[in-house]
Nucleic acid binder design. Structure first.
Lengths: 193, 193, 193, 193
DNA sequence: TATGAATGAGGCTTCATTCAT
DNA sequence: AATGAATGAAGCCTCATTCAT
């Protein structure tokens, strides 16, 4: 009498997971991770409270999934941006542009300026990847030599901080140009020291 | 509802406030702002629960006091560092060194790498001050011209990100040198563009 | 934060609501509304503290539910009592008797002689109904003319005050007779004035 | 070196007590006895919290003092009203008029329609006094015979209930006339039964 | 006496989580 | 798998009251 559990069920499962993630995205943006509760997330959903636990063990797990999702969407774009780089300038400019564009597309005005925490496996992997790409580029002579770890940190720092200006309305190209020239000149100076 | 005989009267008001702040510093470091509760803070204190509310209205208020306190100790050191600068190199080197030294002295190992939120009035004022000093240094010819807002953001981003390396054990002088040269070369390039 | 295995599932929702109301009735009678706390009510129940909030938002809401419940049981009896009245005497006697009987049946010895507050919608509706019935009875000539609002107030005042004597052990019939004659004679006098 | 504790001190003491009572009157009117706290009363005062306990042991004690104060001001007026009564009509009319006038003068618009509780010694004494006066008046032939206890209850009930109408703006003389005639006719009927 | 900070019991409520349906 | 009522630990905070000054 029951219809056979076709693809319909699978779809529902995936949909429920997405429903929860979407609600969490919104709730975290409004309330911050600290302020949000599992209840808040559930309430922003047509689902029942128990259903949440079929998909996630805790608020933190959802948060983590959200961060990974971001990294998952961002990393390929960054990798691609760096892939075709045959000069320091293209390496930098394409990387910054890709990041700033992503920020511009995805940022949602949030009551909580909660800075993205960057300790999830996916995000850390993205950083490691960047460091590795820098080292390779240095080896290929595309980037001048300099301590890769510090350089990675500096790039990340500048990127995140200028991203705040993007969120506040600054122009993507302008920020890209600024960051690119800063690092072009800076790396040049570092390699001569 | 009956108070106990006490004896806690030996502690002055200011001392109690300090006691709470110290406990909060430790608790937030261990649990993070999100994870910590007012109860946790009180428990890390010899005081009674009600006493907390004689000094702070909420966890957030303590947190804010803590951030302001940091800014209050850091700002004079940064101002002083920049005050005597008669060249771009000294401006940058002394600023970075002061900041990195402060981080090295004050950082406590924390389970939560929770990045300092930078939206407290004191911290924001520190940023505004930096931007203004940069503009003045540019006017005096000490720093080459470039968009001061973006430059401030970039300096802050690099400083905070390299500070993480300091916390992880990196050398203050090394980081100072790296950052200084990065920006010396970078600003030079920017001013020529 | 771990719920215990339960077993409480045998009680239906409606039963739980009744359980809380019954406990509240008892607790309010003993401690008075002012003195009672939500905790007291919960403690007089086999339920968990959180369960209370599945049914009522506050102590006041329970109190209100209790008052309405009383009015809900009393009003039909009073209406019925007045319905068949074809003379002033039956109108009054049956009304007072119904009320005094209700009080005698339902009163529980209470530490707090807290007078029933009469501002709940249900109770007010009961008063309005009485006033209307009085006006109709006056129109039909069953009751002599007199200011209906004042008359209602007077009837209510006498009924409530004599109810105290009932609670203290006075006889229902005796009080009914007293009140009936008082108003028979009184209304007569008023209609002549 | 200290000025001798003249009458100044006595004045202050009495003033403080009055200050607290006045604050309590207001606070109870706004918040109701149940809702008001000692803190609320203190806050409505320029005094320190500890000072409260030099004058009263608890919120209830203040409340009781307030009720007694009312009874203390009302009783003499009622006694006087009845003193000169040489007929049932004057006995009733002067009593009701005195009471309604007192209500009209003293009532303050209150968020809480909290009915005056009538179990304080002072208030009960007032009732006993009334009952006694009624019995005396019956003995003198001024009032017709009827069960004095029930009659007292009925008078009180009507008086309090019509007082609500006074608070709502009804006219003192009108209510006095209504109540007087009701009881004149009513007692007459009762004495004949 | 007056003050007001300290106390800690205990009020109110929400929370994460389970589990019978 | 989905539901949602029940649970009770534990959060938040206010309260009455004391007592050193």
């Amino acid at each position: 009498m029951e219809p056979k559990p076709s693809g319909r069920r699978e779809l529902t499962k995936a949909q429920n997971r997405e429903t929860i993630l979407a609600a969490a995205r919104q709730v975290f943006a409004q309330l911050g991770l600290a302020g949000a509760t599992v209840r808040d997330v559930i309430r922003a959903t047509p689902l029942a409270s128990g259903t949440f636990y079929n998909y996630f063990k805790s608020k933190e797990e959802v948060y983590q999934a959200l961060r990974d999702e971001v990294a998952l969407r961002l990393r390929p774009r960054l990798r691609e941006a760096r892939a075709g780089a045959d000069s320091a300038e293209t390496f930098l400019a394409q990387s910054f542009r890709a990041f700033f564009q992503f920020v511009a597309e995805n940022h949602q005005p949030s009551a909580e300026p909660e800075r993205l925490r960057m300790d999830s496996p996916e995000v850390l992997a993205g950083f490691a990847e960047l460091k590795q790409d820098i080292e390779e580029a240095q080896a290929r002579g595309v980037l001048p030599p300099a301590d890769a770890a510090s350089l990675t940190a500096a790039l990340v720092g500048v990127a995140f901080e200028l991203a705040e200006r993007i969120k506040a309305g600054a122009d993507v190209e302008e920020m890209t140009l600024f960051a690119t020239q800063l690092f072009l000149g800076g790396m040049n100076a570092l390699s001569k020291a």
